[in-house]
Design a protein around this nucleic acid. Sequence first.
DNA 1: GCAAAAGTGTTTGGCATACACCCATGG
DNA 2: CCATGGGTGTATGCCAAACACTTTTGC
Lengths: 246, 246
Amino acid sequence: MKKEKSTAEPHGKEKDIFNLNISVDCTIFGFHSGSLKVLLCKPSAGEKWMLPGGLITRDEIPDETARRILKAKTGLSDTYLKQFSFFGRKDKKKGEKENPEILSEISLAYFALIKSGDAQLVEDNDSEHIEWFEINNISDLHPEHKIIFETALSSLRKQIGFIPIGYELLPEKFTMPELRSIYEAILGRELDRRNFQRKMLSIGFIKALNETRKVGAHKSPNLYSFDKKKYEEAERLGIQLMSNNL
Amino acid sequence: MKKEKSTAEPHGKEKDIFNLNISVDCTIFGFHSGSLKVLLCKPSAGEKWMLPGGLITRDEIPDETARRILKAKTGLSDTYLKQFSFFGRKDKKKGEKENPEILSEISLAYFALIKSGDAQLVEDNDSEHIEWFEINNISDLHPEHKIIFETALSSLRKQIGFIPIGYELLPEKFTMPELRSIYEAILGRELDRRNFQRKMLSIGFIKALNETRKVGAHKSPNLYSFDKKKYEEAERLGIQLMSNNL
DNA sequence: GCAAAAGTGTTTGGCATACACCCATGG
DNA sequence: CCATGGGTGTATGCCAAACACTTTTGC
């Protein structure tokens, strides 16, 4: 927080202290059509794809800005949302060769996990196109946002044992292969089908339903759902859901 | 990053977009006299203790601000330094009942690991006192900074397997009990002396020297040092040094 | 019947934990 | 010679990893 007397400033350079531009950028993850997706928007044709984002307004704290952006693009309010990093950048202002103004900008980075089936994508005035991209097949993303996205994925990977990923990303009823494919996408490697299932069920948050879903020329997988009560009880105690190495 | 066209802003409210105050606050860890310490400063008598921090100047990105603060307080440059979080806050400005100005402030939080033996503590104009505090015995720390400090410690705990803690905090030669006491302080619990030693040596970054240090009425502990080459090789490959549960 | 993928069970090895024993030092 | 704490070795148990076998479904 800002102090009454700011410390460690170079002496006599108070005039150099100023307010920077701050934006909030959201990496919004969703799951559908069998794979993990990220939501990107394109301000106008010709420009590169970008993460949904915006500037902080005067009456907001960063969390509120992130919620506002999420709501504006997807219509959703109650989703998993977490700050994971921030990024600084320096730019020389054009047109001033002598004593060029150096402009610093800061991006506060959030990631969100949403049930993409519930989302109503909104193409507002500022973003002509808005679209889901398979996370291993992203094209033409703004380079700085690419770094943010990759950091988001890496951050999600580190926290994978602490977040009820499936609960946040999947609809009420889901199959074990669906759940597994999310973990595989996040970790970037295949997981043993049988060990995965045993582990997931052993935690106790996931209960089997007496239903199956026909998906192809093979045995129909069972449907499962999260036991929200048990999960919340564990969350209250701050327990790690599972080890990070599945 | 700020976009050319800012997205997701409420229409017609451009005037509400403004720049916030941003400070960088550093949780600086050191080790000496047998225990893990954190560096705090007191702007003036009567005020509470605070984490070293300062505002970002116009030509800086946050990393540079953090380095500047670290250098100003300790004289050190090449240390482990990592952003771990940011904090937002809302304050209603006093004295304006009608249409009260809401002031948002943001603190970007870093933690540093330094060899405290190399540090030259500097009491500059802005901080009358600067002092090491044993991390379990911190008195009268500014409440908001207390939250930042605790988040720093918690963040360090989560990353304990990825950082060569001892290399950053200890002098060239150190004993195994010293190394262990750092891990115990960070994790907040005792570790088995024998298992700890075996694990540390098994990683291969720590080599035994043919020297001991006399420290008391018992067997003199061996001295060890880090094999920097092997560590850098592993870091390059992005390998986790050790599991998180020692 | 066959391919494909789901459900269930078993074996194995490595690592965390716990503890026993010996060694060196100062008082 | 005893208290203290460092160094080395060993037993145990759990869990992750690997894999075998059966079941179900569409073609």
